[in-house]
Design a protein around this nucleic acid. Sequence first.
DNA 1: GTAATTATTTATCATAAGATAAATTAAAGC
DNA 2: GCTTTAATTTATCTTATGATAAATAATTAC
Lengths: 187, 187
Amino acid sequence: MEKLLTFLRKLGPLSAEATDAIAAISRPVNISRYKNLQQIGQTCQTIYFLEQGIARIYYYKNDIDITEGFYFEQSIIVRAESLFTGKPSRKAIQVLEDSVLTAIDSSKFFALFNTYPPIERIFRKIIETAYVETINRMESIQFNTAEERYQSLIKSNPHLLKKVPLKYIASYLGITQVSLSRIRANQ
Amino acid sequence: MEKLLTFLRKLGPLSAEATDAIAAISRPVNISRYKNLQQIGQTCQTIYFLEQGIARIYYYKNDIDITEGFYFEQSIIVRAESLFTGKPSRKAIQVLEDSVLTAIDSSKFFALFNTYPPIERIFRKIIETAYVETINRMESIQFNTAEERYQSLIKSNPHLLKKVPLKYIASYLGITQVSLSRIRANQ
DNA sequence: GTAATTATTTATCATAAGATAAATTAAAGC
DNA sequence: GCTTTAATTTATCTTATGATAAATAATTAC
């Protein structure tokens, strides 16, 4: 939990009081490899901070498992399309290693915004950053070849290949597992 | 400007004082068709609200004009990758019809957040919504065919075809103009 | 450790979309 | 209105990726 608080404080000032208020609604979560942290169909009501491990958000498109995103240590994980709309999520959160997280009930967290505007500000910055990343990723998917996307991914996350099955990487890149295998063979 | 204030109030409560503070830093902008509201290379320091007209954000990828997004009446337009990072934007904002907008200096607007947390909250909700839309659009680009994306776009924006050159629609869909023409011919 | 399961690769064929060029149509400038 | 320019369509060829199936490699369960 201390890691979460450190992470948040890097994004903006937090009074001791505000920090305590967050700590008071945070709980540690330990979960073993390949377990789902959140199931498909649940409405997202939890904000996670990944302290140790790797996670992914995935969903099914025509019965095929699609990885929407990978998450690494020191990152916030939410199913935004559900958290911000209140609708049940079509997506699940799964850890790909034994993982340690901090979980915060989103409604309790949002309630803190009224008392502690700096908390709301930090959350806003988190979302802004995630938004910019998504814009950039969309551009990459639209105009880079699958091979370029693969090279770029493993360059920015060299450990991914050791830790994540290729089939998850393939769907993240927007291609089939067979295509990814072909791309790797041509290197 | 009144339209902007009405738009913002739909997203959350705003005191008369907060409303006045926004009005005080808002200025009307009239711009004629095909003019750029913001140029490539400028850092985004303006938040626009489109009252009347159509706009797009575009950039060049290998010297090819790519439309990142279309914007219609009653919507906020910002170049998020620049506004939230402080870096110069690779993107431009252009209007595709004679348009009427309200412009707000972003640093003045962000300064209001300290005095009026409800303004920050409304802005946060705007970004959250834009983020969710981008997530959904990414999914669509990744897993729907170009034809499906085209059908879906004209269904949700029937007037687009009358007002926007097809070449802009093509790059928005992530395909060449020639491909779009082929898709249209097969209908 | 062995069997069963799952992941990955390889091969073949089909297809959507890119690249390029040329023809046609529409719009803009004078 | 006529000319020039730009937009759109059509045609041809190429290529990256999908679909499917089968072979191989790696992992998991017992």
